[in-house]
Design a protein around this nucleic acid. Structure first.
Length: 117
DNA sequence: ACTATGACAGACG
DNA sequence: TCGTCTGCCATAG
């Protein structure tokens, strides 16, 4: 298990501002890994970070998590529309660019100061 | 080294 | 809109 990779994912999640959400794929894309890796990491290391701000591309989550997430979303003013099994978040994808910049700076800060080629 | 699997994403029918 | 198949990267057998 590459702890540094885990760290990248957790940081990315923490950088998502309240009231905003990003998909696994969005984060995975920025990290250059597979979206499933983000989910796998969140499952094992999700505690401690605003995991409810990370959803599938459809804006839904596994039943147990969706329940808790919905509660958090309500607090952050994220509107959700019940849709059978899952839920759909309003334009969640557009919010990624808003925190992508902050993410980039944070990742750069994590890079070893003395580890350039 | 190979195969199966995963809190997923995108294309298809 | 929904179910299925394929692609993605890393981890577990």
């Amino acid at each position: 298990m590459d702890e540094s990779l885990v760290e990248r994912v957790l940081v990315a999640v923490e950088l998502i501002p309240a009231g905003r959400v990003a998909s696994y794929g969005d984060i995975a894309g920025l990290l250059g890994i597979g979206p499933r890796q983000v989910g796998a990491i969140m499952r094992h290391h999700g505690a401690g970070v605003p995991w409810w701000r990370v959803t599938s591309h459809a804006g839904d989550l596994p039943a147990p998590l969706l329940r808790r997430a919905a509660d958090r979303w309500a607090e952050e003013g994220i509107t959700v529309k019940p849709n059978g099994l899952g839920c759909r978040i309003n334009q969640y994808r557009l919010d990624l660019v808003a925190w992508a910049d902050a993410w980039d700076r944070a990742i750069a800060a994590q890079e070893k100061p003395g580890n350039p080629s």
